[in-house]
């Protein structure tokens, strides 16, 4: 019994140690954007276009970039940064669009497509897995926050 008592915790510790780590996401903006660092709360306000519709310094429309299909990066962004479920996010943008014709978030199939969009649009803000930020990607976008 004693042996079992020792072996079970050891087994669980080993499982935890070898379990794959959760994704780490980077919040990215265009190189043209003058913003260098943002807090999680600020990212939420900008991405949801809650207080501002345009970036203060560059005077460009804030364009939130999202992913088309559900994936671990999106889950992490929604839960850790926005504090909202996927349904709540969709309803939020539908409501805004219905009320005032405000354009909803753009959606992309991959991190590479998100990086291309954010790199080309001065007002864009998006999230990608940090592993997708290759040297080439870093020439297009800059990271303003990392979330684990």
């Amino acid at each position: 019994m004693k042996k079992t008592f020792i072996l079970v915790p050891v087994f669980f510790v080993m499982l935890t140690a070898f379990a794959p780590a959760g994704p780490e996401i980077a919040i990215i903006v265009s190189k043209e954007n003058t913003v260098d660092k943002l807090t999680s709360g600020e990212v939420k306000l900008y991405w949801l276009r809650k207080i501002k519709k345009r970036w203060p310094d560059i005077n460009k429309n804030i364009k939130p970039a999202d992913r088309k299909a559900k994936n671990p990066e999106q889950d992490l962004f929604y839960s850790k940064v926005l504090g909202m479920s996927a349904n709540d996010v969709e309803t939020y943008f539908s409501q805004k669009q219905y009320e005032s014709g405000e354009k909803p978030q753009d959606k992309f199939a991959s991190d590479a497509a998100t990086i291309d969009f954010v790199g080309e649009e001065p007002g864009a803000i998006g999230f990608v897995n940090t592993a997708s930020l290759t040297a080439d990607a870093k020439t297009k976008v800059k990271v303003v926050l990392v979330v684990q």
């Binding site: 005032s100 014709g101 354009k103």
Partner: peptide, 14 residues
């Protein structure tokens, strides 16, 4: 039927 379009940075139609 609901259509919105962003015609430019500042102009949108609904």
């Amino acid at each position: 039927l609901f259509v919105t379009s962003q015609l430019s940075e500042r102009v949108s139609v609904l």
